[in-house]
Design a protein around this nucleic acid. Structure first.
Lengths: 341, 341
DNA sequence: TTGTAAGCGTTATCAG
DNA sequence: CTGATAACGCTTACAA
């Protein structure tokens, strides 16, 4: 522990000038003679002076901090999104205050109160939210400071959103399966109280309806949206009297569990059963067989969210409150044209 | 955007008292009459006053922020560790400033300088580091503010460390394989310039030596420590004249790629080849077959790192600068007693 | 071009 | 028990 950090006064003293001049040099503002500038720079170097940005921010009320609320790091989508956010924010010198909500509204509220106290400039809410109420505090929040959500939105509020067209993504996944001749197509979904899963279900149903395929309730299973849920869901499907020939998994992690269940049942992929995932996390490419999936651009979503909040903070006009990305199908090796039947 | 946040002055005015009293009420410090307390509390509520903690911190020089440097969110170990860190830090009201270094020393230095400017109270360095130099700036840093590293350490410095006994973990993995009768055991490792991988190699070699098994250089392959590396490494091993009957993967993600390569070659797990991973990320349980691995306690490592920095910050005596956890083998379904030979 | 001094919103000190 | 007032380290009018 060194004695004491040097202050701007120390620099001024050493450079034989005033704090004002030092500040001007440091911030490249106002007039400074070349001579003074050099003396100051030398003093800064000599003392290894680091301005206490906290103080500056106190004066300027410009903190350059944004709070990020992440529901759960176990969902591999979020770390990727976080990378996108961080890369972008870092460029503009914003720091990230990270908070893990575990999808608990109580935790979320507590974190938000904390972030507000810490005077963050804005908040990014990562991930889809439960649709059943609980959004008032977010709407209130958005009236105070800029708020950007990803993978979800609140209609009629001033919350900004970056998301993919999930309904359409699911539609593409299921259409792909239909295009390969499948008719008995199931979905392993998460809880449809979350908008993301509601949308996936919607896309699934639309795709079937558009091809005049009857929707079967026992082909629609809801599980926790992780590997364990995929495993359980697939087992349920395989136990059906007439199991599906193809399954749409609402996330890549669900697909991982599904694959495991299929193998365990002694079946093959894609010969016995075709599979499409959702997200395109890096892992999906490295499974065996590599997973056909819908690219939901996790990194890019984060990047855009960060860009959005930065422009809002800089009072740039936003042409739109909501950015919607078009997902795309990534064909790999878990799907096959149906032969028999 | 509301007009203006109320300040402590506003509260004092409304409560018909002085800022000092308000501050005392807010911080439960010093004597305040019940009457004054009530008036202040009422005013606080009425104005919905939130103290600007940043300012307080500026005065107290007690920021309650700790910076976390994470090498790469693509390594599933780190998000888990981050959860452990965050959960613990949050309890004591510390905020996390998250930084992604991408394992670039330049980025790391820049981030550290930034964090210092922001006056963080301490820094946690997540993940193993390259052993070839580059550590001076960390040592310098640790002389200024508390630094704790995870999964690595710097001898003779004042850096605190939380890590598992990696050598021993690798030893256990390989011993397990030997115990099952395997003699041709390979390792798919990362770059041994990183201490974590160097240690894994060491444990691997020790285990073989202790059983009098000759170390074969072509059974030691080094790849990027992700799925792609595992895939490539396994392909190399399978192409050998005498492929191994068992493989120790230096990470679970390497194992994922390895599994893929094994399947692609038309072989079975564990009948044709046994596999042990390292880390015990949640995913490993859900692979098919579920992966036998070494538990490196990612969440717990993070939690301990946070606890460590908190006690250092509170000037509690640390009995040790280095906490070492004992890894354990988790037997699942990728290993089998060797039959033929 | 420079320096003085007034803020920023708190907390700490010290008379009353 | 209370209230002025100094202090924290920095930025920035404003005067010189």
């Amino acid at each position: 522990m060194t004695d004491k950090d040097p202050t701007i006064d120390d620099v001024a003293r050493l450079a034989n000038t005033s704090v004002a001049t030092v500040s001007r040099v440091l911030n490249d503002k106002g007039y400074v003679s070349g001579d003074a500038r050099i003396r100051v720079e030398k003093a800064v170097k000599e003392l290894n002076y680091q301005p206490r940005v906290v103080t500056r921010d106190n004066v300027q009320k410009n903190l350059r901090h944004v709070g990020i609320l992440v529901p759960d790091m176990n969902n591999y989508f979020y770390p990727l999104e976080l990378m996108g956010i961080e890369d972008e924010l870092e460029k503009k010198d914003y720091s990230i205050l990270l908070c893990n909500t575990y999808e608990k509204v109580e935790k979320e509220k507590k974190y938000i109160a904390n972030l507000l106290k810490k005077d963050v400039d804005g908040i990014i809410l990562v991930g889809s939210r439960s649709t059943i109420s609980y959004n008032e505090h977010i709407i209130d929040l958005a009236e105070k400071i800029p708020v950007v959500m990803t993978n979800d939105y609140i209609i009629g509020s001033c919350v900004y959103s970056v998301m993919i067209d999930i309904v359409n993504g699911a539609y593409k996944a299921v259409s792909h399966l239909i295009g390969l001749g499948h008719r008995n197509i199931a979905i392993i979904n998460g809880n449809i109280e979350y908008s993301t899963f509601a949308s996936k279900q919607e896309g699934y149903q639309h795709a079937l309806e558009d091809e005049g395929i009857k929707i079967q309730n026992d082909y629609i299973v809801s599980e926790v949206p992780y590997e364990a849920g995929g495993f359980a869901g697939m087992k349920r499907l395989l136990a059906l009297e007439k199991p599906p020939t193809a399954v749409f998994s609402a996330s890549d992690q669900i697909a991982v569990g599904g694959i495991s269940a299929i193998y365990q049942a002694g079946l093959r992929i894609p010969e016995d059963i075709s599979l499409v995932g959702f997200s395109n996390i890096p892992l999906s490419e490295h499974l065996h067989p590599s997973l056909t999936t819908i690219d939901a651009y996790p990194y890019h979503t984060g990047k855009l969210a960060a860009e959005t909040i930065i422009s809002v903070l800089n009072h740039k006009e936003q042409d739109q409150r909501k950015i919607i990305l078009e997902p795309r199908l990534i064909e790999r090796n878990t799907c096959q044209r149906i032969t028999e039947n």
